[in-house]
Design a protein around this nucleic acid. Structure first.
Lengths: 79, 79
DNA sequence: GTACATTTGTTCGTATGTATA
DNA sequence: GTATACATACGAACAAATGTA
């Protein structure tokens, strides 16, 4: 895992946008279902900071891909 | 809001100085008490970057108008 | 009922790169 | 070249909600 399409720190596209795109693809492909990994997990998986993870997830929420429940986790929105 | 005395990007006075002055006036007038808005709030309220906010607040701290507590916030110094 | 771990939410501290005057 | 200003990114500390033992 954390396969080919990892993030590119040298890209002109910000890391949080790159990560949001990756996560959206994972959801679309059905590789992430029902629940997103915790922020801490995503930090480890993608080698970025928590702030970057949170910004990426915020973008997913904006486009209706996820909902957050404090203390429980972040859940993929049924589509 | 973000009322009358907003900041003027075209002024010769740097934005961070303008903001420091505004905040000091708010404190003196009693419109800001006990706690300053978070840096993020000030960013939104005044339409400047976080660095500019931090520089302004640093000036307030220099003159004894505020104290910072990491993770909690910035507090108006009792006078 | 309490204590603990997990998870998200908020806030400040710092560094770097870019653009502009 | 210098100072200002913005955006991105990482780190750390603190807070609150949740679930479980």
């Amino acid at each position: 895992m954390s396969s080919v399409s990892d993030l590119d720190p040298d890209s002109l596209t910000p890391l949080y946008e790159q990560l949001a795109t990756v996560l959206r693809e994972e959801i679309d492909a059905g590789r992430i279902t029902s629940r997103l990994p915790s922020e801490t997990s995503l930090v480890q998986q993608y080698g970025v900071s928590r702030g970057t993870v949170r910004r990426a997830v915020a973008l997913l929420i904006d486009v209706g891909y996820a909902q957050v429940s404090r203390g429980r986790g972040t859940f993929v929105t049924k589509r």
